[in-house]
């Protein structure tokens, strides 16, 4: 889609972002040198096991990292404006207005004591110079748009009067309320019934496409990524280990971890065969091995893997962080 379009500035640009937790047993690095761009209208999927740092990346972009976590390096740019150093109030004006967020659990994302219409209108009023009546009209329009049946009567209902899927639609309406440039959707369907998941993803995709809104879609479900994303970033132990167009990463993953992940997607029409799985578990933050963090689980590890962290280099259509592609690593080093 918009990848490689140098004429157009990316909506979001993350450069070498690092994040650490200061605990009494030392400083733990939870995110390491994360870099990626999201172009206008693009859907970037972020996948990885839980604990890989997917959600943390999303939370860091929107500036909601709680203590003892803190950004320890890197930059975050939103449409040419740096936003990782603009302070509490500056960030607040960006949240909701220019970056919308959708959390995992629609059951707990809405304030149980406020009518859904009021919650949407509140968001609109916070960010836009409109009257209360206009805000309510906008709330009604949004509810209609996200497919709430009989929105005129549902606008004054309380969250508990909606089903899980309907609540997540309300949450999407809330995230879109102030027409943001980017939506960060953190596992938006994980808490929902399987039958509703596809509807919600389709809805999100349609609404963002018609608005030209970019999406950062965080999930551990490769199936969702395959259907929805334009590009995908694979995370492991706080680093991006592979990033590239979704078709290439799925068909020809370059990093052994990504290969393992792809092996875990059931392919339709394929002969019945066992899905592969990666043995072992991701290391804890305080026990990340030297060199490549994936080495202990990697079936193709070589001597060099224990020595240094491989850089992220272009390998074919994607970029990967693996010494197996050392030729490319060296070429890229000699080229620049």
């Amino acid at each position: 889609m918009a990848t490689g379009d140098t004429a157009m500035e990316p909506v979001l640009s993350v450069r070498n972002l690092s994040l650490e937790f200061v605990t009494r047993r030392g400083v733990l690095r939870a995110l390491n040198e994360i870099s990626f761009d999201i172009a206008r209208g693009e859907v970037l999927g972020v996948v990885g096991e839980s604990g890989a740092g997917k959600s943390l990346t999303g939370t860091a972009i929107i500036g909601l990292i709680d203590k003892p976590g803190r950004l320890s390096g890197g930059e975050i740019w939103l449409k040419g404006q740096r936003i990782d150093n603009i302070g509490h109030d500056g960030l607040r004006k960006i949240r909701g207005r220019r970056i919308g967020m959708i959390f995992q659990d629609p059951l707990t994302s809405l304030n149980p004591l406020f009518r859904v219409g009021d919650q949407i209108a509140e968001t609109v009023l916070t960010h836009m110079p409109v009257s209360k009546a206009e805000a309510r009209a906008r709330a009604l329009a949004l509810l209609t748009e996200v497919g709430i049946p009989a929105p005129e009567s549902r606008i004054d209902a309380y969250p508990h009067e909606f089903s899980g899927g309907m609540r997540q639609r309300v949450v999407i309406a809330l995230a879109l309320a102030a027409e943001p440039d980017l939506i960060i959707a953190d596992e938006p369907t994980t808490a929902l019934d399987v039958s509703v998941q596809a509807q919600i993803i389709t809805l999100l995709k349609r609404l963002c496409r018609t608005r030209g809104t970019s999406v950062m879609l965080i999930t551990h479900d490769m199936g969702v990524i395959a259907e929805t994303a334009d590009r995908v970033a694979v995370m492991y132990a706080g680093r991006i280990v592979e990033i590239g167009p979704v078709a290439d990463v799925i068909r020809q993953p370059k990093h052994p971890y990504a290969t393992g992940l792809m092996g875990a997607i059931p392919a339709l029409g394929a002969k019945v065969q066992r899905l592969t799985q990666i043995s072992g578990a991701m290391p804890r933050l305080n026990a990340i091995p030297a060199g490549c963090a994936f080495r202990p689980r990697c079936t193709e590890a070589i001597g060099k893997c224990a020595e240094a962290v491989p850089p992220l280099v272009p390998v074919g259509a994607t970029s990967a962080r693996c010494w197996l592609h050392e030729a490319q690593v060296e070429r890229s080093a000699s080229h620049g």
């Binding site: 929107i62 909701g96 967020m101 959390f103 707990t108 809405l110 304030n111 509140e122 916070t126 995230a175």
Partner: peptide, 24 residues
């Protein structure tokens, strides 16, 4: 979570504390 979500929506701190949190 809903307080976190309210923050993510950019609602002002005072409003989060005195409207959303206090009522709950």
């Amino acid at each position: 979570d809903f307080i976190r979500f309210a923050r993510a929506r950019g609602i002002a701190d005072r409003s989060i504390e005195l409207r959303h949190a206090l009522r709950n």
